[in-house]
Amino acid sequence: MKLPSTAHTRQPWRIHEFTRDFRLEDVWSFRTPGAGPEDFPEMLAAMLQGGFAPRNLPTRFLFAVRWRLGRLLGWDRDGEGLSTRVRPLRERLPAELAGTAVELPAGSPFTSMYELPDEAAREIANGTVHAVMHLGWAQGANGEYELRMAVLVKPNGPFGRFYMAFIAPFRHLVVYPALTRAWERAWRERDAGLSPRR
Rank of each mutant, 00 (worst) to 15 (best):
R55D: 00
A64I: 05
A53P: 03
L62R: 04
L48S: 12
V65S: 08
Q49M: 09
N56I: 13
L44Y: 04
R68H: 01
E42G: 14
L69C: 10
V65Y: 06
D39K: 11
A64N: 06
T32H: 05
P41G: 07
R68S: 04
G50A: 10
T32D: 02
G51S: 07
L62W: 05
L44T: 00
R68E: 00
F52A: 13
T59H: 15
G36M: 09
W67A: 07
A64C: 10
D39W: 10
G36S: 07
A46T: 00
T32Y: 01
L62D: 01
M43G: 08
R66A: 05
F40L: 10
E38T: 13
G51W: 09
R60S: 09
W67E: 10
E38I: 07
F61I: 15
P37E: 08
A53V: 13
W67L: 09
P54D: 00
E38A: 09
L44P: 01
E42N: 14
N56Q: 04
R60N: 06
Q49I: 03
A45G: 08
E42P: 07
W67G: 11
L44R: 08
F61Y: 12
P37V: 02
A53M: 13
M47P: 00
N56P: 04
E42R: 15
F61M: 15
P37T: 02
P33G: 09
F40T: 03
N56Y: 06
P37W: 06
A45H: 08
L48E: 13
G34E: 00
D39Q: 14
F61S: 15
R60E: 05
P37M: 02
L69T: 02
A46L: 06
P54W: 03
E42Q: 14
G51K: 08
G51Y: 10
N56S: 05
A45P: 07
G50P: 07
E38W: 13
F40K: 14
F52C: 03
R68Y: 02
E38Y: 10
P54R: 03
R66C: 03
G36T: 05
E42M: 12
G34K: 02
T59L: 15
G51F: 09
A45M: 13
M47V: 04
Q49A: 15
G50W: 05
R68C: 14
L69F: 11
P41Y: 03
P58S: 03
R55W: 00
V65D: 00
W67P: 07
D39I: 13
L57P: 08
F40Q: 12
T59W: 10
A64W: 11
D39P: 13
G51L: 12
A35N: 06
Q49F: 11
A46R: 09
R55I: 01
R66S: 01
W67H: 13
L69W: 03
A46D: 00
R55A: 10
G34C: 07
G50D: 00
A35S: 14
R60I: 06
A46W: 04
P41W: 02
T32Q: 04
F52H: 12
R66L: 12
P33F: 09
L69P: 02
A64G: 15
R68K: 03
V65Q: 05
A45D: 10
P33Y: 08
T59C: 14
M47D: 00
P33S: 10
R55H: 01
A46H: 06
G70Y: 04
T32F: 06
E42I: 09
G36Q: 03
G36K: 08
P37Q: 07
G34N: 02
E42F: 11
M47E: 01
E38F: 11
T32G: 05
A35E: 01
Q49D: 12
